[in-house]
Design a protein around this nucleic acid. Structure first.
Length: 290
DNA sequence: CACCAGGCAAGCC
DNA sequence: GGCTTGCATGGT
């Protein structure tokens, strides 16, 4: 990959294993929206971004090289070799096809706090509504930022949400999840949970710490570990993953525990990547629904 | 109208 | 311990 500047844009060439549609449509990230077939726009890490792709060429509009190096390089996980991961995972027909179909997926390194709240909101919910709730949360309580003549909003800090009551949150229409968001904000603000401490823990210990938050159970904590803490040894088992593993590897209904142990055995430390390839492939092709 | 949506907590045994 | 049920809201 080469990094150049063109006017106010950062231009990447010879980029491999990268597809904006795969990255932003595989359900890991809720704040980026499709502008056209090659372009997405959104907010992450306190910055707005417009990113466009033409095969191996990527343009980050109105972005400095410093911001690319300081923020977007890590956000897009450019330090990880996804070809190697796909080679290791593509050991059977199912995984070969899933890795081929979503070959441009990368697991974004999203801010921990935003990931905690986003996946609390995801519980028993659908992706369009999750995005709507998060958007209202940011509009109501985040900071306004200007970008390309438009106003965007950052994700509100835990300390900001900790000042709110459950009633204050009613404007975002999160339903029964509002009290969970407040509890998470309180734990992150009071020191009961500290990001640096959580990051220092092993994956099982970090999971236990995250599950002390009301509204964070087995599945949500696995998503936080994977998307917010870059723990690829975590394999979130949601209804989609459960159905596709059953459909492709068992041909009968299995317990969530059985699915988890199967994934641990089969994918090990690459489970999180496998989960994303499978999730995207299954959803886009409606596999395992019947 | 009933049913469900990337689950979870609380209340039952 | 495992199993059931209620949960807010919005879309079919």
């Amino acid at each position: 990959m080469r990094i150049d500047t063109d006017n106010n844009n950062v231009v990447l060439t010879d980029v491999r294993d990268f597809d904006v549609n795969h990255i932003f449509d595989c359900g890991q990230c809720f704040r980026f929206n499709r502008i056209d077939e090659n372009t997405y726009m959104g907010v992450a890490c306190g910055r707005a971004l417009r990113i466009s792709q033409n095969s191996g060429d990527i343009t980050l509009f109105n972005t400095t090289v410093d911001d690319f190096n300081d923020i977007w390089h890590d956000f897009f996980d450019f330090g990880t070799d996804y070809s190697e991961i796909k080679d290791a995972l593509a050991r059977d027909d199912v995984m070969r096809e899933a890795c081929r179909f979503g070959g441009g997926i990368r697991i974004l390194r999203q801010p921990l706090w935003e990931t905690v709240v986003s996946f609390i909101i995801s519980a028993s919910n659908n992706i369009p509504r999750i995005k709507g709730i998060i958007e209202r949360l940011c509009e109501s309580f985040g900071d306004a930022i200007r970008f390309e003549g438009k106003t965007f909003h950052t994700f509100p800090a835990a300390s900001v949400l900790a000042e709110l009551s459950v009633e204050d949150l009613s404007v975002i229409r999160a339903g029964f999840r509002d009290k969970y968001i407040i509890d998470a904000a309180n734990k992150f603000t009071s020191g009961a949970l500290c990001e640096e401490y959580i990051r220092s823990l092993s994956t099982p210990e970090a999971k236990k710490a995250l599950m002390s938050i009301n509204g964070v159970g087995n599945k949500v904590s696995d998503c936080i570990l994977l998307f917010g803490l870059n723990r690829a040894d975590s394999f979130p088992v949601d209804v989609w993953i459960k159905r596709i593993i059953e459909h492709c590897y068992f041909d009968s209904e299995q317990s969530i525990d059985t699915i988890s142990r199967f994934a641990e055995e089969k994918f090990g430390s690459l489970g999180g990547y496998a989960q994303q390839y499978l999730f995207y492939w299954a959803r886009e092709n409606k596999i395992g629904i019947n």
